[in-house]
Nucleic acid binder design. Structure first.
Lengths: 194, 194
DNA sequence: GTCTATAATTCGATAGAC
DNA sequence: GTCTATCGAATTATAGAC
């Protein structure tokens, strides 16, 4: 199964990536994908067994792309707490929801092939946060009683929960306020320098 | 339109409440609702114009029920920071997702009648957290640089994001760790007494 | 490898008897 | 107020020509 030289396969995956972000998994039909990609029925079922596998391929690409962006924010060279703040305050389209995390409540998460890329993406961010916070802790910049692991978990939760708040209130400011709170908390439990 | 004396109407709404939590809005069909409630086609469309209105009635009841539970946790009599901790650490079924917040990424949120109960529920929790934190602030128990508003937003975001993490990793512990982090942060920015 | 045509099922909703 | 029967459209997938 060649992954190169097939124009329609790439168009199908690209269309699926866009639709999964816009509508999620259940609300995206093969028909929608074909319409947006300009491919015919046969192309999709020639390259993939069915809808699930198309989505799995699209999600894998989405996770890879987003992890690369996140890795840019966590690149060495800047102090660890600056990297954490850079992640928290990066630009986001709050109302569109998290490109991968938005699938959390779909039945798709019962399919390992669909859950894995999403888990890998969020797990990678959490690990990056934890590593930076451990560096800060080693440099004596973390208040006693604050553990890097739970703090990292709380921070990624603020981001994913911030998307939920923005969507539910239909207001970008709802997410900004939650992130503001996280930034204030981080400042309160850290000392400059590291 | 009598809201009493109609046995099937109540059965339909009860079944819808269960299905919205289990599967969400788009994945719940009128057929599913009728099967679970034991009602026939005609009963649903006699009592409601269609699927959207059944869901709106179910969500309104769900929000009312959950708000009553939350109000119990925030009842006066206990110190404000104890109320906040009680909310953070209350028992939850992490893998089932937030009964209302789980709809955040569905197209249902574009319908005001469906978005409103969800927004009212999360807004009520956030307001209760903010009020308790303001009390603590007035008693001098909040660190300087920590504002009750953003802190309340961050805390409710940790809860909603915690559900996302648990679902995506399919692990209750993922949510517990995020809440642990929030509890550690809260302890670090408050003083006992208030 | 790509296309069109079509199948079997489910979707949300309506008709009309009782 | 409740039921069964049914509709037209959409769903995921298959068949088979080119």
């Amino acid at each position: 199964m060649p992954r190169q030289g097939s124009s329609k396969r790439e168009a199908i995956v690209a269309a699926t990536k866009a639709l999964l972000w816009e509508r999620g998994y259940e609300a995206t039909s093969p028909r929608d994908v074909l319409e947006r990609s300009g491919a015919g029925q046969g192309s999709l079922y020639h390259h993939f067994p069915g809808k699930r596998e198309v989505a799995a391929a699209a999600l894998a690409e989405m996770a890879e792309e987003e992890i690369a962006v996140v890795d840019g924010l966590f690149a060495a060279g800047t102090p660890p707490l600056d990297r954490v703040r850079a992640y928290l305050t990066r630009e986001r389209q709050a109302l569109r929801g998290c490109r991968l995390g938005r699938l959390a409540n779909e039945s798709a998460m019962e399919e390992p092939a669909l859950r894995e890329p999403v888990a890998a993406y969020l797990g990678h961010i959490q690990a990056s946060l934890r590593a930076s916070l451990r560096e800060a802790e080693a440099a004596g910049s973390l208040s006693p009683g604050i553990e890097p692991g739970p703090l990292a978990a709380a921070l990624i939760a603020v981001i994913e929960g911030g998307y939920v708040l923005a969507r539910v209130h239909w207001d970008e400011a709802a997410m900004r306020e939650a992130i503001d709170g996280a930034v204030q908390l981080l400042a309160a439990v850290t000392r400059p320098q590291a």
